[in-house]
Amino acid sequence: MNTVQEEVRSGLADIVNEIVGVPLDEVRPEQSFADDLDVDSLSMVEVVVAAEERFGLTIPDQAAAGMKTVGDAIGYIVANR
């Protein structure tokens, strides 16, 4: 990961930690939100809304639905912020 990607990963880690309590260093690009991090569909909405605020962008529902892994989210945020 480059610095920008790492900055976004670290921000997402804060958000996921706040919402579901997963330790910060376990939030890695290859991790699936649902399968590895215990982020269910309702909590995923919270993650998306918090990410919008933190990174200053709007994430349409369709884009959010495509974010299966932390890497997916990092990629979308880096490309669209």
Binding site: L42, S43, V45, E46, V49, E52
Partner: peptide, 9 residues
């Protein structure tokens, strides 16, 4: 947008 998705449950 800020209404919690947990509101209903």
């Amino acid at each position: 947008r800020k209404v919690s998705p947990h509101t209903v449950p």
